[in-house]
């Protein structure tokens, strides 16, 4: 009876278009990238094979590469240590909103749905030195001395980027934990209530431990997304001032398209893939052991 469900021709035609698209757009480019990463191509004209010299240069003598990695780690820490705890707290609190619950959910999520392109342009205007909202606000509350060229100074620029990324992604983080909180069975609540648990106890002792598997997935996703980050940085600072806000993807972009170092840019590109895969594997392993008992 199940013969037709094992028919090879049918399986082939169902899988082939998608897999072809998938390989042509994802695996082939990575292979092409690896090939060019072994060359000294400048984008036009002839080029020679240089073996792994690009990689050696990156590891041995490219402070900007390490700076990019550091920035990604910084953003990842921002997500995990600031954004996510806050998102968990809000997810627990929102369900006490009664008839406002739905509206709260929508308001919190809206920034996440709008194009990064729009929100980043918006924040760039807010940090603007001429008509920016932030400097104007500081002026009005009498803190004129706090006014800054926010995106023009290295340490403020990276702080602004981390902040904007956390702002934009907050809705996602919130929604994931909110779904987790909502998934806690009603009987557990009722039993705890009968035993006289307070709201705070209930959330800390029952809801929080039950969120552990959700937490694990979300932490992995958040950290990987910090390494993948490109659009916000590209639009806010393009990696400047003086390469202080480069992330791997903006760095490979500027190496290839601004400095015409195609081979070098491709080497960074390959490393980006390797790093994302490695980070995912390592985190999954490490966190599985830690919270395994609940999963």
């Amino acid at each position: 009876m199940h013969n037709i469900l094992g028919d090879r021709k049918t399986i082939f035609w169902l899988m082939a278009p998608g897999l072809l698209l998938f390989s042509l757009m994802i695996f082939v480019p990575i292979a092409v990238s690896f090939y060019y990463s072994l060359t000294n191509w400048a984008g036009v004209g002839d080029y020679g094979m240089v073996g792994f010299r690009n990689y050696a240069d990156i590891f041995a003598s490219d402070p900007v590469f390490w700076k990019s990695l550091l920035n990604s780690v910084l953003l990842g820490l921002g997500f995990v240590l600031v954004q996510h705890p806050f998102a968990i707290l809000v997810a627990m609190l929102v369900q006490y909103g009664g008839r406002w619950e739905k509206l709260l959910r929508v308001c919190i999520f809206i920034p996440a749905i709008i194009s990064t392109f729009v929100t980043t342009k918006l924040w760039t205007s807010i940090f603007d030195t001429q008509f920016g909202l932030l400097n104007r606000l500081l002026d009005q509350v009498g803190l004129t001395s706090w006014q800054q060229d926010w995106l023009g100074q290295p340490h403020w620029a990276i702080a602004c980027i981390v902040f904007v990324c956390m702002w934009q992604g907050f809705g996602y983080a919130f929604l994931l934990y909110y779904a987790g909180v909502k998934g806690v069975p009603k009987d557990l609540y009722e039993a705890a209530m009968l035993d006289g648990a307070s709201g705070a106890q209930l959330n800390r002792r029952i809801v929080l431990p039950l969120l552990a598997p959700v937490l694990r997935v979300n932490v992995v996703l958040a950290i990987v997304s910090a390494f993948k980050q490109m659009e916000t940085v590209y639009l806010m600072t393009s990696g400047g001032p003086a390469n202080s806000t480069q992330f791997l993807s903006t760095y490979l972009y500027s190496k290839a398209f601004r400095e015409s170092l195609y081979g070098y840019g491709n080497a960074i590109s390959v490393l980006l893939v390797v790093i994302c895969l490695a980070v995912t594997l390592v985190l999954n392993r490490a966190l599985k052991r830690e919270v395994g008992e609940y999963g």
């Binding site: 757009m25 994802i26 480019p29 060019y36 972009y253 590109s269 980006l272 994302c276 895969l277 995912t280």
Partner: peptide, 19 residues
């Protein structure tokens, strides 16, 4: 296919531009 979720989309920016 699921591993495709981890691969950063902008790692294909340069090679796809050339291809």
């Amino acid at each position: 296919v699921m591993a495709g979720m981890i691969i950063p989309i902008y790692s294909t920016l340069l090679p796809n531009f050339m291809v």
